[in-house]
Design a protein around this nucleic acid. Structure first.
Length: 380
DNA sequence: TACTCGTGGAG
DNA sequence: TCTCCAAGAGT
């Protein structure tokens, strides 16, 4: 008779966590906890929004900047949208910043400055989904919520050898976690699960020898750790092409404008660009109403005369000159190749629907990474 | 359910 | 170099 694997225990994981917890700026450390300090829901919420699909390393500086500048949800709610977008620039997924601001306003102005303490109340707020609602409820309010993120999915699909591909397996993962969540220290339990996934139960070459649950893991017993989680096949990444235009005044100011609030890089700042083509040369599908006349599209360099096409897509006639190397940038679901054009223009050139940004101001603009590459490619 | 939505670091 | 992917949410 072969001994059955014991069920994983929250107590074992918490004992491991007591020894190996990562010290992170948004966490209440053990010493503080002993001193009776509890988590600040604002800081927990802010960190969880920033950490959505984003690494701890990338978040740290932004978290420090935000909490120093806006120490409370009321302060964030009172800030101009534009300042928040500028502070978020470079972190990606800009809908998070828009929802962050809306959520802060709701909490500050409609909820008396207090975050809801239960999952349902949190879930109703903009930018807060199943994961974040559970995480804030558990970490900030001590609720025994089942916190399921990518780390937890990996840990649990291995422990229980769940072969159903994600995201279909999500319900089974959540059900499993619900059987484990302790009534005591549920927030630390959630942090422990995530730390375990981040440091021990890693995607490649997990350190099973160091895992507090290695005796309970079905995948490890079978030697198939790296086969989990099973994921649905991903779609291929198409290539889109376009042109970006950097107009430079004699004083060094460059012309920028604000992108539409919705969609890709919504609400952020950009250099004027042509429409971006899809693989087959057609313009990308539009969500809104079709314009009566199609926007001029720049053909890929080499296929037609880049200069001639660029002049049609440029924001205004000028001595546009194409930079040698195009900017390439990979988004989640497509790869972008942007030809960069630059022109020296007179001081009297009107800004149109945009504005002129001085060299001393450009770094502070809400300029996404792809357009910072454009700026660099234009030699600014 | 299946897309859309960024970025930069690790392997 | 290139693929994967990191504390997901909205539609």
């Amino acid at each position: 008779m072969i001994a059955q694997r014991p069920a994983p225990s929250a107590a074992d994981l918490l004992a491991w966590y007591d020894r190996h917890a990562r010290r992170l700026p948004w966490r209440v450390g053990p010493a503080e906890r002993r001193a009776g300090i509890v988590a600040d829901p604002y800081r927990v919420w802010l960190s969880e929004i920033m950490l959505q699909q984003t690494t701890v390393a990338a978040v740290k500086d932004y978290f420090e900047t935000f909490t120093r500048r806006w120490p409370t949800v009321a302060a964030l709610a009172a800030a101009p949208d534009e300042d928040v977008m500028k502070a978020w620039a470079g972190l990606g997924y800009y809908a998070r910043a828009r929802n962050l601001k809306r959520c802060a306003e709701t909490v500050a102005f409609s909820l008396d400055g207090r975050f809801p303490s239960d999952e349902a109340g949190l879930l109703a707020l903009p930018g807060i989904g199943a994961y974040t609602a559970a995480a804030v409820a558990a970490i900030a309010f001590g609720r025994p919520a089942a916190v399921v993120d990518g780390n937890v999915e990996r840990v649990v699909t291995r422990i229980a050898a769940i072969a159903t591909p994600l995201p279909a397996a999500k319900a089974a993962v959540r059900a499993f976690v619900e059987t484990l969540v302790p009534g005591d220290r549920p927030g630390e339990f959630a942090e422990a699960m995530m730390d375990l996934g981040a440091t021990i139960c890693t995607p490649k070459r997990p350190a099973c020898g160091l895992c507090p649950w290695n005796g309970s893991c079905a995948a490890r017993e079978a030697g198939t750790q790296e086969a989990f989680p099973v994921k649905a096949a991903k779609a291929e990444r198409p290539v889109r092409r376009g042109a970006a235009f950097v107009a430079v005044r004699p004083d060094g100011a460059v012309l920028v404008r604000k992108r539409p609030d919705k969609g890709l890089l919504g609400g952020m700042t950009e250099f004027p660009t042509s429409a971006w083509t899809t693989d087959d040369g057609a313009p990308p599908p539009r969500r809104g109403r079709k314009p009566k006349t199609a926007a001029p599209v720049v053909a890929p360099a080499g296929r037609a005369s880049p200069i001639a096409d660029a002049s049609a897509a440029a924001p205004f006639p000028a001595g546009w000159r194409r930079m040698m190397a195009p900017v390439e940038h990979t988004f989640t679901h497509f790869h972008l190749v942007l030809e960069v054009y630059r022109a020296e223009v007179p001081a009297s050139t009107p800004a149109g629907d945009g504005w002129w940004s001085q060299p001393s101001e450009i770094d502070g603009e809400a300029l996404p990474s792809v357009f910072r590459k454009v700026l660099a490619a234009a030699g600014r």
